[in-house]
Nucleic acid binder design. Structure first.
Lengths: 167, 167
DNA sequence: GCCTAGTGCGTAATAACGTGA
DNA sequence: ATCACGTTATTACGCACTAGG
């Protein structure tokens, strides 16, 4: 059932290592068994974490500028991307990725708020509908009351018929 | 030999270009700076992005087994995690991460379904409400008719008041 | 003109990481 | 430690445009 050890790495790295063995060797020197290097174990509070590489996490400054740009326009033309990248000291690629991810986030957020908006709208409409239903329930009785009244008028009219008759 | 017909080569080059942009960048010099109404052009595989090279893609087999396990239970006890990890040839950490991400995905998917369900429900209720509203529109005229009738009866009654008065 | 390979950018999915409870 | 949640990065498509037959 097993026997496939990390094919996701093996396949790609195999090809690469065949084409560029030297590069492969210098970039991925250690595979150590069947697990890839995973530095990280303890809670390094406020630490740059990770000795190897990985400088994740953009600074608050960078993020705020990105957010401002995102706010004015969700799409990103090459020109703006490059400008932002140089302003932020980031790879244009990173800027593009940030925007892509930001759009995805925005979409999810949008969906969530659309959901709650729709939910409240739905609930109020349901209440309205119930009100109307009870109102409509009164319709037949009102109709019946009208009928009774008309009958009453008719009977009254016939009772007074003597007024006109030469009795 | 397009990227569609031979994705391996394409993907491989993509990966290589991302891992070793320097290798890739020389091929295409950046040409001319000028703004055309259309944005299209620009050849430059940027620098850096050296961080975060190791990546993945689990095999279909691994994913299907993970999915089966997720289907039976969204939570993952240590025991099951370790068993799965050894069956799949993965780091237990990877299995844990996979489950965490899977739960997040599931949540989003759930939200989406709930949204569309709510949406159809909402629409049908709106239709119902409109139907009731037009129905209720008849209510005031009926009510008015009743009122008129009652007034008529009253006036008729007062006209006949002499019958009872000791006039 | 009409392919066809190459390239840039977009989206969707997803892996892995970081933080805080 | 695990989990939820947010974030960064990558994989793998798809589409539009372009240059060279």
């Amino acid at each position: 059932m097993t026997s496939n050890l990390n094919p996701q790495v093996d396949d790609q790295m195999l090809l690469i290592s065949q084409l560029y063995p030297s590069l492969y060797a210098q970039v991925v020197p250690v595979v150590e068994g069947e697990t890839r290097p995973r530095r990280r174990r303890k809670k390094n509070k406020g630490e740059s974490t990770n000795v190897g590489a990985r400088k994740r996490k953009l600074s608050a400054e960078q993020v705020s500028l990105l957010e401002m740009n995102f706010g004015s326009e969700h799409k990103l033309e090459s020109e703006r991307k490059d400008r932002l990248a140089s302003e932020l000291g980031l790879d244009p690629r990173q800027v593009a990725v940030w925007f892509q991810n930001r759009r995805a986030r925005w979409k999810n957020k949008k969906l969530e708020e659309e959901y709650s908006k729709l939910k409240t709208a739905h609930e109020s409409v349901v209440v309205e509908k119930c009100r109307l239903e009870t109102e409509v329930l009164l319709f037949p009785s009102l109709s019946y009351l009208l009928q009774l009244t008309i009958q009453f008028v008719d009977s009254f009219d016939s009772d007074l018929s003597f007024l006109n008759s030469p009795h």
